[in-house]
Design a protein around this nucleic acid. Structure first.
Lengths: 209, 209
DNA sequence: TGTACATCAGTGAACGCGCGTTCACTGATGTAC
DNA sequence: TGTACATCAGTGAACGCGCGTTCACTGATGTAC
């Protein structure tokens, strides 16, 4: 099969596009940075191409529309988030119940500075999705996945947070919503992230103790 | 002072503009409806004027810019929200501690269908504010006022929700953030509002019990 | 290894549209006498 | 009460700009022989 050409009469063997392989990645990366600092709507395709070192056409040879690019970025980010949760679950598995609980609370509530940037972009995506059915399903699916992962974490490592009468999924939903709400407040110029998360920790600790 | 004209030589007595008094209100109201259903960015001034029965010029004779209109709407809504909280506080004052607690939890977590619409507009405002310093201060001030009002409610009527080691303001912040986060999820096509708020109630009840 | 050819990623000019804002105007409303 | 005048809320056409998208092209890259 290797030496013998398989019927050269066939119109065109599907050849892999192996030209300037990094273009798409570079555009994605530039778009990510610009979206983070200026938001999706305020960032033009021209801006992105310039930052990545290409012209508009390069963009349209890699993405169908601007929304398509946003979706690619979202999928990337969503995958990262899920991978992180899986890592966290695996790490938690190794620990004793006490240390595990401490780690999980911290991991669920802590905020990296980078995230305060992402939250705005994510909110913009939620907003867009609210008016765009296809996108809405994507966000909803992502929410379901993250909620389920966090619910599993809670069940194994923080059962105190799942009170009798409630399901782990409900607790996860509330925690994630609170987290997103707090992040939104900080990102839009409210109190510092650290301060708000201290609040959340204090409230949680008090309620649990 | 009434019969005698006070120096008619004076250039022009400031006369009150009492012409088509309802124009501004009509535009505001039409804008509110359209913003609710399509969002701020997707609603054009032309749309608003048409819905209100005027032309573009009428708009600019009542508002400086589109952002100015949004701000007026925001202030209106913010005042309503604060008034509602005051009414709630006054009503709670009349009740025994048990009934009062029940009422407050319900009031803080219940969601009117109308609010799921407003939340999207509010998020869009937060997003805009995140990139616009003057707006940011407005939202932050509103957040502070609402948080303080809710904190006062909690201190008087739901001290169980303010665990030892935490301040009422912190508890208020967490509750409001969770509420906003949950609303954002429903509004963008996630689970039904009722379902999410059941979750919050169940979690709270469990933690408190 | 060298040459001719085909492909297609990326170029860059142009299109077209939506929309916020401006502006010269007009006619209904209120004031002065 | 009636008339002349001034004001200014609202009209509607036009401006201008940003931006997403299209498209005819070109030249580097890979393939065939």
């Amino acid at each position: 099969m290797t030496g013998v050409n398989s019927s050269p009469a066939e119109p065109a063997a599907p050849r892999p596009p192996r030209r300037r392989v990094h273009t798409r990645a570079r555009i994605l990366s530039a778009a990510g940075e610009l979206f983070l600092s200026a938001g999706y709507a305020r960032t033009s395709i021209e801006d992105i191409c310039a930052a990545a070192g290409y012209t508009r056409g390069a963009f349209y040879s890699n993405f169908a529309t601007k929304e398509d690019l946003l979706l690619a970025l979202f999928d990337e980010q969503a995958a990262d988030r899920m991978a992180e949760l899986e890592r966290l679950a695996a790490a938690a598995e190794q620990l004793g119940p006490e240390e595990r609980a401490r780690r999980l609370v911290e991991a669920l509530l802590r905020v990296e500075p980078a995230e305060t940037g992402w939250i705005l972009l994510f909110l913009e995506f939620r907003l867009l999705a609210a008016r765009t059915p296809e996108l809405a399903e994507r966000v909803a699916a992502h929410d379901r996945a993250v909620t389920a992962a966090v619910a599993a974490l809670l069940e194994r490592g923080l059962p105190e947070l799942v009170p009798p009468g409630a399901e782990a999924g409900q607790a996860a939903e509330v925690i994630l919503a609170a987290r997103e709400g707090l992040l939104a407040r900080t990102a839009a110029g409210g109190p510092a992230a650290a301060q708000l998360l201290n609040a959340a920790m204090a409230v949680l600790a008090g309620l649990l103790g």
